[in-house]
Write a protein that binds this DNA or RNA. Sequence first.
DNA 1: TATCGTTACATTATCGTTAATGTGGTATTA
DNA 2: TAATACCACATTAACGATAATGTAACGATA
Lengths: 348, 348
Amino acid sequence: MMQTTEKKRVTLQDIAARTGVSVNTVSHALRNKSDISAETCRRIQEAAREMGYTGNQIARSLRSGRTHIIAVILGGLSNPFYGILSDAIQDAAAFKRYTVMVMCSRDDPELELQLAEEAIARCADGVILFPSQGSQKTIERFQEAKMPFVLVARTPAEGIADAVVWDETGAAYLATRHLIESGHRKLAYVSDNDVIYSSEHRMEGFRKACDASGIPESDRCYLKFSGSNGTSENGSQWMETLQASLTDLKQKGFNGLFVFCDVEAWHILQALDHSDQVSRSDFGIVSIDNLESALAFPVPLCSIGYSFKEIADNSIRLLRKRIHGDTSAPQKVVLPVELVCRGSCGRS
Amino acid sequence: MMQTTEKKRVTLQDIAARTGVSVNTVSHALRNKSDISAETCRRIQEAAREMGYTGNQIARSLRSGRTHIIAVILGGLSNPFYGILSDAIQDAAAFKRYTVMVMCSRDDPELELQLAEEAIARCADGVILFPSQGSQKTIERFQEAKMPFVLVARTPAEGIADAVVWDETGAAYLATRHLIESGHRKLAYVSDNDVIYSSEHRMEGFRKACDASGIPESDRCYLKFSGSNGTSENGSQWMETLQASLTDLKQKGFNGLFVFCDVEAWHILQALDHSDQVSRSDFGIVSIDNLESALAFPVPLCSIGYSFKEIADNSIRLLRKRIHGDTSAPQKVVLPVELVCRGSCGRS
DNA sequence: TATCGTTACATTATCGTTAATGTGGTATTA
DNA sequence: TAATACCACATTAACGATAATGTAACGATA
């Protein structure tokens, strides 16, 4: 009769059986509770080590009601902006013994809601949400489910939830002023198609800076280049459209571009590099995010930076407060920004 | 006496109480098991919907022994290489109803082992591991714990586990040949400090291509620029060292650089861009990974590409086989590669 | 000495499911 | 008509831990 040595995973029960105490005693001993004698505690811990005990976090979570998981819902990790922030968030979370579960919404509200549902089903202790345009339902769902959450980077509305953002208006102001100080007097505000929540703040900063320097309304323009992240099949068509727009801008005498974010600025640069009509030297370009500081790209872009670490730390901090039952009014943390000049402004 | 309406989450029990059936019946009805009458099934499902039932995945996992979680252990998401692959893996996993848990090892063997331990504690159904230099212990741990896993991108040794890689030798061969065909006859193999497992294969491809074109040993060299991902504080010092190395190469007449991967090539480009002694035009540069295809960077780099989707799909496929109990010999999938020329080869 | 508190454990309940069985009633078959 | 087979549910156990109590032994205190 062959005995199957199907070695299953070691449980508290196994340790209890071997040491001759109850399961509870083992549990307490391993957690260094004070009601176990030093000698017993040592014996049990030694046995646990010898037997190769690895606690079952699932069982622990079910009983204790805490998973120590923080879900992070963001657009997608192919975007370095999210990649960098994910790393920062993981660091901050790990420091407080939380595990991060990254979920990618592809900026699709429906998928985002599905992910929210999953975060709830998996009993995440809290969620960090990078809202996109259609996050209203997601937010309501979290509120209904009493799931602690923090909004990061954008807030669909004021005061609805804890949020960590940076000074959007100030950033756009700094960027625009940098263009102006670099000698550009006809400025375009360039962004990807959809209006994001932060867009209005950035526009305001752009406007303020123009006003402050006496740039007339006629010397400002707003260019929305639409769709495609440049990787899709219709990428070339999209790029041609963008190139045509840029050529048009140049012909009208516009020479300064404030681009919504670094990723979009890369697309602009790529379009310029592949065009016969326009080139990098035709425009001063400044954008927001300062991704190069974290990536060491060979793409010198003047950009407005902020601290990724501060964003991560504050997100975790606010979230933990809620997880631990805080019910005070929603808090909004606004982080400072700074200009990093790398020459793309075309200062002469 | 105030009644606290502390609305807790709806459970099967609540639904059972309301519909007047047993918990088991509810469970079966919601999973469309065949032993529940159509009418009862409808009633229960309707009640569940009305009450806003969200299953508790933790309880499910504990009972069923399946978490439907796949842990992915990789270097870090700030590296677009990993970001892109994470997205691809999430897509492939989601298709099979798995949730991905990304864990970043920072290429630190100790931290990696810790993450492995956590994957085990959280009862992941399987793990996708991007091994770094010290992954031996991690691999042994997974084997000991009978945790299904797949190695991706690199394999510390042949035949020890399922693996999904691409044709490293072929990639290096193609890259090197591309340099040669672009008119370069003195070639350097450039890579970051540490020897990675895939390094020997790439070196072999480099050697083969040189041999095939009659490049003498004296016209080949191996440059290892060390440490720093370009973002640390000693970044400038590191860059100066790199710049000196490149200047040295130039002076010795080397004009073709085969760089280990795109990310490292960016660092090289950045060093070149910031140097007075050397510039991009001094070298033809070809590397591996073809990240631009997924990122739309304005950094035209000749690179060897492979399909991120294929890597993800195959990883999930192999992993699922193990999860479902397959115990056949370890399988290794080698994906084909192709050259994408973007001009950095300096073809004249 | 009776009461009390403390120490060091054990016992029992519970988290929310799913799996394995149990069961009464009706329809089918021999 | 008795045995048998479903059908549609109910009951019970289990997953592996933690939380809430329970308790025997002992020393200290009134």
